[in-house]
Amino acid sequence: MSIVGEIIISALLLVGAGFMLVGSLGLARLADPLQRLHGPTKATTVGIGAILMASMLYQFVGHDKISFHEFLIALFLFITAPISAHLLAKAYLHMNRTDRE
C-alpha cells in the first residue's frame, strides 16, 4: 500500500474518531436536553462519515475492492439523523408541556 494512501486513511480515521468523541462529549457535557441534541446529530454523523470513507479507501487501496456498503450505511445515517433528532426534540417538548400543565 502506498504511503500516501496510508496517511490519508489514518488521517480520516483519526478525524472521524475525534468527531465522534466530541459528539459524545457534547452529550455528556452540555447543560440542557435540547442543547445535548446538537452534539450527537452533527459531530457524530460527520465522524461516522469520515470513518466509513476511511474504510472504503482502505478496501480500495489495500484490497483492490470497491465496496458500496459503507456508502449505503453513511447515506442511511445521514438521512435518518435529522429525523431522529426531530422526533426526540418533539418528544422532549411534549413531555415538558404535559409536566407544566
Partner: peptide, 8 residues
C-alpha cells in the same frame, strides 16, 4: 461540525 465541536 467544526463550530459545534469548538463550542462543546
Amino acid at each position: 461540525s467544526l463550530q459545534v465541536a469548538r463550542l462543546i
